[in-house]
């Protein structure tokens, strides 16, 4: 089922979030773009080349979810192995491996066997192997899953630093706050179908405004009701919820002189709200 109506373009230099519930087809899409899976129909291109093209792979990298490596090797040996896959000569490898260990904060642990590494350290090695070729496009699948707050923050910073260097990041994650914080654009996939895509502002700007009024009379409530999408009572306060700016002004005008206006709070919808809404809609 995974990925039967998925069509999108990722722009150069952006962090593109790719989110969806479990089984929505996120990893399938990534694997298709990497040439690990083959599309039964349609077309997948990466950096202008067909998915899986060896030349394109010189310029991309991939960090799978919970990556595992050969446990008997040390961190430095694993990176040396991955450097060899890029046909780097011995001199380049000797220079590049310590640089990578430094970049991911593992300089002091490079000579330890991976079986002694914590989950966070393994994830850092995973990121280091993804940075070997200084890729133009990075695919990160759940890069922060199961990490402690420090490692989580470090990896988030590392992703942001890639954008500063002009790299493109394709980020698939369940950590919606991460996606909201770092991504420029987001695509939401559900049941193998792309259901929403846009910049963070485009997707989340349609927030509601809550106008709180103290002791409104029944006449006022009746007058404002058509302008509100929802009204709630909280003790002596009545809250009017509305979507449009025009209605906000109309409600404020109506309240003026009739009751006490306590607050006007624009509410920005979070990515999590949007995600839950979309997934729930998809179930009906």
């Amino acid at each position: 089922m995974a990925g039967d109506k998925v069509s999108f373009t990722v722009n150069e230099g952006e962090i593109f979030g790719f989110i969806g519930p479990n089984g929505a087809g996120k990893t399938t899409t990534i694997k298709t773009l990497l040439g690990l899976l083959f599309p039964t129909s349609g077309k997948a291109e990466v950096l202008g080349k067909p998915a899986g093209d060896i030349q394109a792979k010189q310029r991309i990298s991939y960090l799978p979810e919970s990556p595992y490596f050969y446990e008997h090797m040390t961190g430095a040996e694993v990176l040396d192995f991955y450097c060899r896959l890029f046909k780097m000569n011995a001199a380049t490898r000797r220079k590049r491996v310590p640089e990578l260990l430094e970049q991911v904060g593992l300089s002091r642990d490079g000579q330890r066997a991976l079986r002694q590494y914590s989950k966070g350290m393994l994830q850092r090695i995973g990121i280091a192997q993804a940075l070997i070729n200084e890729p133009d496009l990075l695919f990160f699948d759940e890069p922060t899953s199961g990490l402690d707050p420090i490692a989580h923050k470090d990896i988030q910073d590392l992703i942001l630093s890639q954008r500063k260097q002009g790299k493109t990041v394709f980020l698939s994650s369940h950590q919606l706050s991460d996606v909201e914080n770092v991504c420029d654009r987001v695509a939401i996939i559900n049941r193998g179908e792309l259901v929403k895509m846009g910049s963070m502002d485009e997707l989340l700007h349609a927030g509601r405004t809550i106008i709180t009024v103290s002791h409104p009379g029944s006449d006022l409530v009746a007058k404002v009701q058509p302008l509100s999408e929802h009204i709630s009572q909280d003790g002596e306060f009545t809250k009017f919820y509305t979507q449009t700016e025009e209605n906000v002004h109309k409600i404020i005008d109506a309240v003026r002189g009739q009751a006490t206006l306590v607050s006007v709070v624009p509410q920005r919808q979070t990515l999590e709200d949007l995600f839950v809404e979309i997934v729930r809609e998809g179930r009906h």
Binding site: K31, L34, G35, L36, I54, Q55, K57, Q58, I60, S61, Y62, L63, P64, S66, P67, Y68, F69, Y70, Y82, L85, F86, G126, Q129, N133, F139
Partner: peptide
């Protein structure tokens, strides 16, 4: 099983 194949084949490895 160890998913090592994904990181290897994502590199320019035929």
């Amino acid at each position: 099983e160890r998913r090592t194949i994904y990181t290897i084949l994502a590199k320019p490895v035929k």
